[in-house]
Design a protein around this nucleic acid. Structure first.
Length: 627
DNA sequence: GTTCTTAAAA
């Protein structure tokens, strides 16, 4: 009797110490504490088990080890305690064993809010937003009143499913039931949900009304604006954040911002953030891993590969993401060899590549036309690293063959794939068919791609360009007619360039610019000189002939030429690198023109299109005229 | 005496 009560009280104090250690994140001490407890012959009770599961989770212990505890709990009747059950439900969700969690839930006769909430949150964490929402509805139907944590969890599912209506009704529910007492986490979840569903108005409304905001809140509103393509408010919010909080933004906030800079090629803001990162005292207490990786990615995506490489070389602790980012950076700038070399260097440091690394590598090989290397790497990935290829790897392989003109090999690779090829794969094959004017295969690829999505504008455009390039004008017109019938319009071409800290955007037949007249005149003179010097324009090129059809049918608009002319006028005599961006693929005619300008003006031009970067230098482009 | 919560770089 006495011994029993001593054991109980020791168990009690052990449990509370373990909880304290876990809360403060003192993992090693917690582990040591548990080992001592076990070695003294104590057995975990129903209060111990939830904490123990949390400890094992934080220590990344294997599932097997935790299953032993499950058997122990069953044997000792601990599963009668709903706290214990909830712990195991969570554990199985964490390993993706949704069915096990569900079974445990079903076997529990009396369910409380917390167990229900664990289900709602577990489903959404496993990408099963619909089940999460269903369980939420079922719970309310059974008269269990959700708490603020339940609501937060179901909101994650709403964002996942992109159902703002449901999110809104949850919002209403929370207000009606008074669950909205200032709670940063719940409010943040609303900000995030509305932003993810594309409703920035509501998102901002909730955000503005909040009394307390933490870094997650700021990150949610900033990423929300960033992902919805609103760069200006994104940066305004960033400045506000620094001002209001009077403290350092977290790495993730900076990473989101840099992602925006990379996506919009906004080098100016990107450099500003780089400056901020360098000046701030964050370097003292963090390894800057996330910041550095995001910066390297930003520089590469914004077209300044030199700065990306410079930073990369200066980073001392490179992790897998650092290397993969650099490899992908080389790839998008057409430097396949450099990408492969970086990969070898990475292996030498003892870092093991993962599936993402190989996507970056293979895509670098396709843009650098390294067919053999690509194939070698693809085989090595499976043989040496036991990485199962996924759709993205297959797509890269098809592209490696197709981009190099080995269309038949690309096609037979597709036929041998163990899974059904995606829409994207067929569209990319079609794109290469256009480059190499292979009408037969191009038509086949079109058919396959359209079977996925009849309204894929890009596919129709590519097919029409293929016909135009092959001189099949009747077929060209047919495609255009089909597009018209389906109500599909080609994307309007747009180019942009930054001059003297301002970004100028050029649309088709842009006459709004005060320099318009000068620009068109300059283009005329330069084109004349170009022809005299023997630079051949692609007269048969699709976009050139289409231009004759008038404004609506204009696919290219040569907006990149307008941007270039603008730069030439504004920065006469200046010999820097010019960076121009375009929302559509560069047309062949403009490509020749850019090569010519880089030669006669002896300047470097970097042109970004949705596929890759073109580096024009001394009359050449590093894409070797295939892209 | 305890269990369930938001954002996040390739």
């Amino acid at each position: 009797m006495l011994a029993h009560s001593i054991k109980r009280s020791s168990c009690y104090s052990f449990n509370s110490t373990l909880r304290t250690l876990l809360k403060s994140g003192n993992l090693e001490k917690a582990r040591h504490h548990f080992v001592q407890f076990r070695d003294q012959g104590f057995l975990p009770d129903n209060y111990t088990i939830p904490s123990l599961l949390k400890l094992l989770h934080d220590l990344h212990q294997t599932l097997h080890y935790r299953e032993n505890i499950h058997s122990f709990a069953i044997k000792n009747g601990h599963l009668k305690d709903i706290f214990v059950t909830t712990g195991f439900v969570e554990m199985y969700f964490g390993f993706g064993y949704v069915a096990s969690s569900r079974q445990l839930f079903d076997e529990t006769p009396i369910k409380d809010v917390v167990l229900w909430t664990a289900m709602v949150s577990g489903f959404s964490h496993n990408g099963l937003g619909d089940l999460s929402v269903n369980f939420f509805a079922q719970m309310v139907g059974e008269g269990v009143k959700p708490n603020r944590i339940t609501l937060t969890s179901v909101l994650a599912a709403c964002s996942q499913l992109m159902v703002p209506k449901l999110g809104r009704s949850v919002h209403g529910f929370s207000i009606r039931n008074g669950i909205f007492n200032p709670d940063v986490v719940l409010e943040t979840a609303f900000v995030d949900m509305y932003a993810k569903c594309g409703n920035l108005t509501y998102s901002t409304k909730v955000f503005d009304r909040m009394r307390d905001r933490n870094s997650v809140t700021w990150n949610a509103i900033i990423t929300g604006h960033a992902n919805n393509q609103f760069p200006e408010p994104t940066f305004r919010l960033f400045r506000e954040m620094i001002y209001e909080n009077l403290r350092e933004p977290e790495s993730s906030v900076l990473a989101s911002l840099l992602q925006v800079c990379g996506g919009t090629s906004d080098l100016r803001h990107g450099r500003e953030i780089h400056g901020y990162v360098t000046r701030s005292c964050r370097n003292m207490n963090s390894d800057m891993m996330v910041e550095n990786n995001a910066l390297i990615d930003m520089y590469a995506k914004a077209g300044d590969l030199n700065s990306a490489v410079l930073l990369f070389e200066n980073v001392k602790n490179k992790n897998l993401v650092t290397w993969t980012t650099m490899i992908s950076g080389y790839g998008m700038h057409g430097l396949g060899t450099e990408a492969v070399e970086a990969f070898s260097a990475m292996k030498k440091t003892g870092i093991t590549p993962d599936g993402v690394t190989f996507i970056a590598l293979l895509s670098a090989c396709s843009h650098g036309r390294l067919v053999d290397e690509g194939l070698q790497l693809y085989m090595s990935m499976q043989r040496d690293y036991k990485i199962e290829p996924e759709m993205k790897h297959f797509a890269c392989m098809v592209d490696i063959y197709a981009r190099s003109g080995l269309l038949d090999q690309a096609f037979s690779f597709i036929k041998k794939m163990p899974v059904e090829p995606s829409e994207f794969i067929w569209a990319s094959l079609l794109s290469s068919c256009r480059t190499y004017k292979n009408v037969v295969l191009g038509e086949r690829a079109t058919e396959k791609a359209l079977a996925f999505n009849q309204y894929n504008t890009g596919v129709y455009i590519l097919l029409s360009q293929l016909y135009a390039d092959s001189g099949q004008w009747e077929d060209f017109s047919k495609v255009r007619l089909v597009m018209k019938d389906l109500g599909l319009k080609p994307t309007t071409a747009q180019s942009w360039v930054e001059v003297e800290r301002k970004i100028y955007v050029f649309a088709v037949r842009d006459n709004m610019n005060p320099y318009s007249e000068k620009m068109y005149k300059l283009l005329e003179t330069l084109t004349e000189t170009m022809h005299k010097e023997g630079f051949v324009a692609y007269r048969s090129s699709g976009c050139h002939d289409i231009t004759k059809e008038g404004k609506e049918g204009n696919l290219c608009g040569h907006t990149e030429k307008l941007a270039l002319a603008f730069v030439l006028i504004k920065s006469e005599g200046h010999r820097g690198v010019t960076r121009i961006g375009k929302n559509l693929r560069v047309c062949k005619d403009c490509h020749v023109f850019f090569k010519f300008i880089s030669k006669i003006k002896d300047c470097d031009i970097i042109l970004k299109d949705p596929n890759r970067y073109h580096h024009f230098k001394r009359g050449n482009c590093n894409c070797c005229d295939l892209w």
